[in-house]
Design a protein around this nucleic acid. Sequence first.
RNA 1: GUGGACGUAGCUCAGUUGGUUAGAGCGCCGGGUUGUGGCCCCGGAGGUCGGGGGUUCGAAUCCCCUCGUUCACCCCA
Length: 420
Amino acid sequence: MTRYKAPRGTSDLVFPDSEKMERLIETACALMRERGYRRIDTPILEDTELFARSIGEETDIVTKEMYNFEDRGGESLTMRPEGTAPVVRAYLERGLASRGLPVKVYYVGPMFRRERPQAGRFRQFTQIGGEAIGSEDPFLDAEIISFSDALFARLGLERYRLLVNSVGCRECRPAYVDRLRSFLEAMKGGLCEQCVRRTDTNPLRVFDCKNERCRATLKGAPTIGEHLCPRCREHFDALLGHLDTMGMTFEVDERMVRGLDYYTNTAFEFQFEGLGAQNTVCGGGRYDGLTEELGGPPTPGVGYSMGLERLLMALEAEGLDPFVPERLQVFLAAAPGVQREPVLDLLGRLRAEGISADTDFMGRGLKAQMKQADRLGARVVVMIGEEELASGEVTLRDLDASEQWRVPAKGLVERIRQIL
RNA sequence: GUGGACGUAGCUCAGUUGGUUAGAGCGCCGGGUUGUGGCCCCGGAGGUCGGGGGUUCGAAUCCCCUCGUUCACCCCA
């Protein structure tokens, strides 16, 4: 056991897992591009204030989960806990609106939250996310939501469900929350200790309580659905209609709340089976007030973010393995005593042709080199020995077919191409 | 932040009521083929038994503390 270990909640991603993640990222990014989204990369560090303002001063993320620190110049910086606020900040700072609305962008990268790790929860995790800024058309909400569905379909995933809800706007939500709060205060006797506490801090959360008595008490609670203003109602109904026509199956879950303050109207989540307690792989929604909160002009926006480690777990849970690792195409094995020059020359020529090639660097015997070739999944081995060199030939072995031939070094590349 | 479970080779794990040089399988290195993989056979390397303290003639094994991992709560991707 070595002295240094990866910090709690972080881990090394080692091959072949690292390659699965790489392929997953490639697949997801390609799908975003197919839908007209362009790539954006924002810094991992941002002003602490950016997150406090956007996510909400009282949220768990801001009050206890952020990695923030004072840098040597005295500024308070934070390692991003999520991707939306930085994107919106960049949208404003870079004047992306002038590139034409809506601005549709996607990002991939690490996010950081200082929580206790558990199944599907890490302190550093990878998200892919997309944001569509500039339109309040519910069709755009539907497009954002349908991305996940399309990605899951491409990966072969099936055991998931989509939950959607409307959390209202800046007018109707506070009114609803007040009404809910007074209901909860009146029914205090029928609630557990935690729910009584939540009545003050985050009343919407009481709907998550598993306690039987609370559930019974909450039967008569006012729902957000009954309290949406006409505008929000219309937006939500239109969204549901669009999801229908897109052929997506979903459940309206009026108890679903998102953990970030900036959401308005649409909120949605994709949950999977078999992932443990952390079963949400993708979450998102609309954030029509966020740009103003950050000092910009009123601009609507919708987005999603997806946890890629969780997505990998979902694949595992469904027994899917869509990413076969790439094989090495050629391994060059030189018999002991053979000069380096002809080996390096051939290696260079193969690589220049775009053929993946590797060779021995351990000074091993031929047998051990063959073993290495096998371990690397090489398709063919080119053996170079004194004899071959003398006659201007090499031995070409097809490891899959277990056949080999003496071939002239001249047409070797062409010959290898035939096998591959 | 709270609670439970668990820490023995790179990995997965054995280790009998505390007893002498701590084991297996896989992996790794080498040999069986002085120029040939995957199967098989043989050999080898590799372990402060998470760390510290205590009990004992003797601790991987019992006790305490500590660190770590893991699962759950809170909350979330």
